Amino acid sequence: MSKADKPEATAQAEQTSKNPNEEIITLDQPIKRGETEITSITLRKPVSGELRGTSLMDLAHMDVIALRKVLPRISQPTLTDIEVGNLDPADLMQCGVAVASFLLTKKAREGSLEA
C-alpha cells in the first residue's frame, strides 16, 4: 500500500465503522454552560415516542420549532430548549440535516451518500 492509498483506506474504514444511527456535530460556535464549553454534540436517531408533539414533515423541512422539541431528546450532552434556541444558525442547520437524514430509509440514506 502506498502512502497515497492510506488516507483513502482510512476514510473507507471510518465510513464502514460509523454508526448510522448517530451523527457527531462539531459546533462552529461552542455552547457555554457554566464553566464548561460544549464544542460538539452527538445526535442519535430518535424513536417514535421522541417525535411526539412534532410533525415528520416539519422535521424533514428542518422547522426550527420542531427541532427545538426534538433536539433536547436526542442530544448528548443533553441540550436545553434555551441552548437549542441560542445555537448559531449554521449549527442548527447541521443538526437539522442530521435529524432529517434520520427520517430516511436505509436504502434512501445509502443512495444519498452515493450521489
Rank of each mutant, 00 (worst) to 15 (best):
T80N: 00
R68H: 12
C95W: 13
I31L: 08
T105L: 06
D81S: 02
D63L: 01
E114V: 08
I24A: 12
T26E: 06
T10H: 07
K18H: 00
G96K: 11
P77V: 03
A108N: 15
Q12S: 09
P7M: 06
R109Q: 12
P89M: 07
I82T: 15
K45F: 00
K6A: 05
K32S: 06
L56T: 07
S48M: 11
A100Y: 13
L43G: 04
A60K: 14
L67H: 13
N21S: 07
D88F: 08
D88E: 14
Q76I: 08
I38Y: 13
L87R: 12
L79F: 06
L87W: 07
E14G: 06
K69S: 03
L87T: 05
P7V: 12
M93V: 09
S112E: 09
K107G: 11
A98M: 01
L92D: 11
K106F: 11
K32F: 15
D28Q: 14
E23I: 05
R73S: 03
P30V: 02
P30L: 07
L59R: 01
V70P: 09
G96F: 06
S48P: 03
I31R: 10
L43P: 06
I24L: 01
E50T: 08
Q12Y: 12
K18R: 14
V64P: 08
P89N: 14
A11P: 15
L79Y: 03
E23F: 07
M57E: 14
M1L: 15
V84K: 03
D28L: 06
P7S: 13
E50F: 02
C95P: 05
R44N: 09
D91R: 14
E22A: 12
V47F: 01
T16A: 02
S17T: 10
T36G: 10
K45T: 08
E22R: 15
R109F: 11
R68A: 02
M1N: 14
R68P: 06
T36F: 00
D91G: 05
R68K: 09
L103P: 08
K69F: 07
D88Q: 04
A100C: 11
R73Y: 09
E83R: 02
T105I: 09
I65M: 10
L51D: 01
L79E: 05
S112C: 14
P20Y: 14
D28V: 07
R44V: 00
T16Y: 10
I24P: 13
I74Q: 00
